[in-house]
Simulated scan of single mutants.
Amino acid sequence: MLMCASAQASIVMTGSRIIYPADSREVSVQLTNRDDFPGVVQVWLDEGNPQSAPQTANAPFVTTPPVFRLAAHSGQTVRLRYVGKPVAQDRESLWWFNFIQIPPSEKGAQADNQLLVLVRSRVKVLMRPNGLTGSPLEMASTSRVWLQNGTLFLRNNSGYYLALSSLEVGDAGKKQRIQSETIAPWATVSWPAKVSRIAEANMRWINDQGATLSGRVAVENQGDVGH
């Protein structure tokens, strides 16, 4: 039996996301086996489907190598090369890098009763053109929130993907807290409002290094929506 599990992976990637400069021919990803035994690793990219598999994924990338054996306590460099059409130059483009760890299987009589657990990890691949509006370190300054007709809105006015960790809005009387969300460049997302007034908005987000940053977000009046 094969089962995809959320168990703690022993094959780990250096970094929490992959940044692919749009003018680069390829980028390298480092994987490390922390186990005391070898394993087989398979890698692929997808366009946003968490149920993707190597046979169905159609992201425009070539991975080298796509499958490899990783010895105990050793590392492997995987090269990613983009082979698709030119990307938009005013925003990041997003794909997902997947890697599955296939542990060694038992041989002999025990093999018939063995449960083989495949541990899958999935991280963002952000293709980043030069000269984008904003900064991954200052996402709060290029974000805006407002209330309109019982709906809370948040707009990402930058060319970078916003990895929102939390958003807290409201006043001294009542607050609303929004949890993790990925917001595309120049995109607006919304939620049913649980507050009737926003006196202050504070945001936490994840940067390229995986650290959580925080900052105050500008609150727009209804008449300023879209700016």
Rank of each mutant, 00 (worst) to 15 (best):
P54V: 07
M203A: 02
H73F: 03
D46A: 06
G170L: 00
I18V: 15
W95L: 02
F61P: 09
D208W: 00
Q89K: 14
L31V: 01
L167D: 06
A187R: 13
G226H: 07
E138A: 03
R204K: 14
R155T: 15
L132V: 03
P38I: 01
S180I: 04
S121V: 04
M3K: 12
R25Q: 13
F68Q: 02
D224T: 03
R34Y: 07
T182W: 08
V41F: 05
P21A: 11
V78E: 01
A59N: 08
R216A: 05
Q110S: 15
Q30H: 11
A57V: 02
R25D: 12
S166C: 06
L154D: 07
Q8R: 14
G210T: 11
N130M: 04
L70C: 03
G108H: 11
T32L: 09
M139A: 03
A5D: 09
E92T: 03
Q114I: 08
V145W: 04
S196L: 09
K85S: 14
H227D: 12
G75S: 15
Q179M: 12
V83A: 01
T133D: 01
D46R: 00
S158A: 13
Q51D: 15
G84R: 05
Y20H: 02
D90P: 06
P104T: 12
M13E: 02
P103F: 08
D112G: 07
Q209W: 06
L137F: 10
G173S: 14
E106W: 03
M203H: 08
V217C: 05
N58W: 05
W186I: 03
R204A: 13
W146L: 14
P86N: 12
G159L: 07
V225R: 12
S16T: 13
R197N: 14
P60A: 04
D46N: 02
H227E: 11
I206N: 06
D208I: 06
S121Q: 15
A53G: 14
P38V: 06
C4S: 11
R81N: 03
S93A: 13
